[in-house]
């Protein structure tokens, strides 16, 4: 093992304001570009076969600035939505139609997952099949409650 002196550290005596934080000078690492190409293939699939794609951005080896760069290229679209289930989930259409940014947050606004979803409508916005099954029953229950209420008042 080398002695402590061998560790290549030098003391920076400049005033704090003059220093540049590590990574600040490098805004982009080029890791967003492959994702953009992947999006292009996914859009192609969506158009020709209707197949949807989800990309987990947390699994990407992004460096500082890469995510910002990706999102700035994609831009912002017209649709914003929010789902309140197990904390908020924010859905933002990007400037590329069919490409959605889905940000899953906990009730403490901690990010659980960040997906890009290539679909006509993000899955989480759609009613779930079981909920649809329950929907009729719920509506029926409410209708009968409505009916009994009106019969009581009539």
């Amino acid at each position: 093992m080398p002695s402590l002196n061998h560790i290549p550290v030098t003391l920076d005596t400049r005033p704090l304001g003059d220093r540049t934080a590590a990574g600040c000078l490098a805004r982009r690492h080029g890791n967003a570009t492959p994702i953009l190409y992947e999006l292009r293939h996914a859009l192609d699939r969506l158009i020709t076969t209707g197949e949807t794609t989800k990309i987990d951005l947390a699994a990407m080896p992004f460096g500082p600035g890469d995510l910002d760069h990706l999102l700035s290229v994609l831009g912002t679209g017209e649709v914003q939505a929010s789902v309140d289930a197990l904390g908020p989930t924010r859905i933002q259409e990007t400037g590329i139609a069919g490409v959605w940014l889905v940000d899953y947050l906990s009730s403490e606004a901690q990010r659980l997952a960040l997906h890009l979803e290539i679909a006509t409508v993000p899955e989480i916005l759609r009613p779930q099949p079981h909920d649809l099954d329950d929907a009729i029953a719920t509506l029926d229950a409410r209708l009968s409650a409505e009916a009994s209420a009106s019969s009581l008042t009539s």
Binding site: K54, D56, A59, V83, A85, L86, G87, Q128, H130
Partner: peptide, 25 residues
Amino acid sequence: GVSRRGFLKFCAATASMMALPPTLV
């Protein structure tokens, strides 16, 4: 009181945590 959308979200987070692709949700 976790809804089905909440459960879906839970599964998406779980997939991410297990380093599995979202297609496995």
